[in-house]
Structures are given as C-alpha cells and as structure tokens.
Design a protein around this nucleic acid. Structure first.
Length: 460
DNA sequence: ACGACAGACTT
DNA sequence: AAGTACATGAAG
C-alpha cells in the first residue's frame, strides 16, 4: 500500500498498469500516471486490476484512459489455467460461443471455470468478457473513426442494444456522450486525418523495448509478399478465422507505443486481431521481471540485452511451417522455401501482398515445386492435417507426427508467441552458445527460457 | 445433481 | 418527408 501511495504521488510510469487508483468522491478510477490533480489520500483506494475497481462501482477515467495502460497481470501469479481462459476471452472466444464450449475447449467443466474466475478475480467469466469488450470499445470510441454501431460489433457485441446497455452501466454515460466528451477534452489532430478505410489504434507497452533487435530479427526473415519492414515499422498481412487483412505497426519509442494502421474485411474479429498484434510484437510481457530473473545467472548476465522481445509468427500454423521448412537448413535456405510456398499456394490479398497459405491449401497441393527431400514434404503435410484436425490446440500432440521431434516442437512453441518457456536444447545455435559461454544450468532460466534462447542466439 | 433465481441476451 | 444514427423501454 505504502509504495502505491508514493508511486501515484510521483506519477511513476514503472507502476503504470500494475495498479489503479480509485477516487471515492468521484467514483472514478485512474492510472497512477493520470495528469489530473492528485486526490486526497483519504479518498483513494487501490486496486490491482481495472476490473476490480469496476466491480467496486468505479468507472474508468476519461483523461488517463485505464484501458490504454500497459498490460499487466502479475497479480495473477502462476495460475496457468486462468491465464489461458483469460487469453481466450481476450481473443473473443466468448463472443460467438457459449461458456460451456469455452470450458470444453480447455478440458475443464464450466462449473470449475466459473469458480476459478470467482476465486481469483471476484467476477464471472461473462463479466470479465464484458469488461474486456467495453475497454476495447472505449479505446475505439476514442481513437478510431468507426461509427458507434461499428464499434459495438468490433468489440465483440452481437447486438447494439446490449452494447448500449452494458456500456452505460459501467461507464455511466452513453457511447456517443463519451465520444463527444473526449472530442472536447483532448483532440488528437493527427488521428483525425481520415485515412481511407484504415483503422488507427495505439498500443502501449511497458519499457524497455529493444526495437532495433526486434527489427533486425524480423528483417532477416522478411518475406516480401506478406511483410514489409522498415527502420521503424512492421507491416504484414494476416488471416484470422474468416477475416483477412493487413496492418502496419510503427514504433514511437518516446511514447512507449506502437501506432497501428489496420485494414480488415470483417469487423467482428477486430478485437481478436488487435490482441494478436500485441502478441506478435510481444507488447504484454514485463521485461523488468524477466531480466531480473535471467540475470541471476552470472554467466548469462553479460549476454542479456535490455528490452529484448520475442517476435512471434502470426499463428502456430505459420510457426510450424517455418520450423519444418527450416529443419536442417540455414535461415537463408528456409527463407527460400517459405517464400516459394507462399508464392505458389497463398491467396492474393491486393496488388502488393499475398496471404500465408492455409493448412487446407497446403493439403490440396502436391508440393512439387519445393526442392527438398520427399520425407520433409510429407512432414509438412502431416502437420497441416494435424492443424486441421486440432485447430492448433494441444500442441504437444505433434510429437507423435512423423518427422517432428523435440527441436521442431520447441521451436514452434518459441515462435508462436504463446509460451515463454520454450527451450530447443538440440538447436545448433543454443549448443554453440552454451559451449562458448560455459553455461551449465539452463533449467534455472525457467519459466523464461524462450527469452534466454533468444539471448543465446543473439550472442553468437 | 438439482432447482430457483439473477441477470445476460434478443427482438 | 424520408432516411440515418443512436438510445432505451418492454417483454420473453
């Protein structure tokens, strides 16, 4: 409590997103960095998450916009199941499907799922889903030019009526009232430049963020027909369920954020895609925590580069294809195979770009154009078939596929952006680095071995 | 495992 | 006067 007091008095950015300040007199809650005059200590109470402040009857501040605080869920501890459920909800899993289906996809009962939420968050899964949608809706109302009806569907509501109702209940004003208020409050001129049909958004992270290394990693693997990387931006095409589109993320280091320009042909997946972009750029992790842990290993310490993030592929399928095409060959040769595969099988998005092929497209092809051993082509097909059957869930079962061993499995985990503890111990780069720097105990890097691996790769 | 109830959701 | 965009009550 004491350090919350000093943190908010100092408007300490290091605590941004880690707790929220609720003001009893106004019934509003803020980020610790809110520029508004500091309220009297006797009138504030502290909450470790926005939803808890909301549950206590507070509404989000219009000025500091709690929904745009850097992501943090440290208070969750090591609740892996809950973490996974929250991720799924944030990916819009409850927008079309029902709670029992979500529970089933995780292999637990809906009763247990509800209990888990009640225990750790004090709210139901549905309530949490609503919270996530409303926060995103608030961001859209503020930053995008979408109409209110479009905002409703973009943030995962299936009816305008529900949206209006839910919105008013937690924000204590109607959607349009909020938008008008914001326009009078802080007009963001550069956002007002109508940009044909692109949606513009800002995604904040908690520093440090080592963009040069991220940029370099991406550039070395850039595939021209689906990506374009510049000094300060990353652009790529994507497919998410039935939606397709592209985004361009431009890094604004001074503001600790990426500005996103995004085109998508089905708004109902906008929220999921936005969260996916956060994953691809690794915006959610707290590197202060990770680096603190990794530097405990004195021998690893000199290899640690501040702010190093994990660049993720768009999804597990893309990561898997790249892993298989990269078996036994150099990064450059893997690039050749991958771009050939996209060129031959990927659908066309527009004049400049194509889409990464789907598992179905891979299955439908004989893959004659790939110059590699027949067995590896078969592995690729096995993997595509597995992906169709499993929808990318339950990744460890790919170890049963012919041609996929521990290296490929760990590599996919590492590059699909969902696991921070992947460790491809048989990787050539990893082995070399271990030897070169006399590193003896990789186990101690857990649960952040994915990051450790990237540091190792960079060190040789 | 069950029923009552609250409240989420649709029209 | 008709059409569009948004908000909300009533009922199931």
């Amino acid at each position: 409590m004491k350090h919350y007091q000093t943190a908010r008095k100092a408007r300490d950015v290091r605590y941004d997103g880690k707790f929220f300040v609720a003001v009893k007199t106004t019934k509003i809650y803020c980020r610790p960095v809110c520029p508004a005059p500091s309220p009297k200590e006797s009138n504030v109470s502290y909450y470790s998450s926005a939803i808890q402040a909301e549950r206590a009857g507070y509404r989000p501040c219009l000025r500091c916009r709690p929904e745009s605080a850097p992501y943090s869920a440290a208070w969750l501890g090591n609740q892996a199941l809950l973490r996974k459920a929250m991720n799924k909800i944030e990916a819009g899993e409850l927008n079309q499907r029902k709670l029992p289906q979500l529970a089933e996809s995780m292999g637990i009962s809906d009763r247990y799922l509800r209990k888990l939420f009640q225990q750790h968050l004090g709210v139901s899964p549905i309530h949490y889903a609503n919270h996530v949608r409303l926060m995103f809706a608030k961001q859209l109302l503020h930053e995008s030019e979408l109409s209110i009806t479009q905002v409703a569907f973009s943030s995962g509501f299936n009816s305008l009526r529900r949206f209006n109702d839910a919105f008013k209940q937690t924000m204590r004003m109607s959607p349009s009232a909020l938008r008008h208020k914001l326009n009078n409050l802080a007009v963001d001129k550069d956002n007002k430049i109508a940009q044909h049909n692109a949606i513009r958004l800002k995604l904040n992270y908690r520093p440090p963020y080592n963009w040069p290394m991220m940029q370099n990693f991406l550039q070395q693997r850039e595939i021209n027909c689906i990506e374009n990387i510049t000094r300060d931006s990353y652009q790529r095409t994507f497919r998410y369920k039935q939606a397709t589109g592209q985004f361009k993320a431009t890094h604004i280091p001074t503001k600790h954020q990426f500005q996103i320009e995004l085109e998508i042909d089905n708004l109902i997946h906008l929220m999921a895609v936005t969260n996916k972009i956060r994953q691809v750029l690794d915006l959610n992790s707290d590197l202060n925590v990770i680096e603190k842990h990794l530097t405990k290993d004195i021998k690893l310490k000199p290899l640690i580069k501040q702010g190093l993030r994990l660049p993720a592929c768009w999804d597990a399928f893309e990561a898997g294809v790249k892993a298989i095409l990269g078996q036994q060959v150099s990064v450059k040769a893997a690039y050749g195979h991958t771009s050939q595969l996209i060129e031959e099988l990927g659908s066309t998005l527009n004049d400049n770009f194509k889409l990464f092929p789907t598992a179905q497209q891979v299955m439908a092809s004989e893959l004659d154009f790939l110059r590699m051993p027949q067995s590896r082509k078969q592995t690729l097909k096995n993997f595509a078939q597995w992906y169709i059957n499993n929808q990318g869930e339950n990744l460890e079962s790919i170890l049963n596929l012919k041609g996929i061993g521990p290296w490929t499995y760990e590599y996919i985990k590492l590059r699909s952006g969902t696991d921070s503890d992947a460790y491809p111990e048989k990787d050539l780069g990893v082995i070399k680095a271990l030897e070169k720097y006399q590193l003896s105990d990789p186990q101690q890097w857990s649960p952040w071995r994915s990051y450790a691996t990237l540091h190792l790769w960079n060190s040789i």
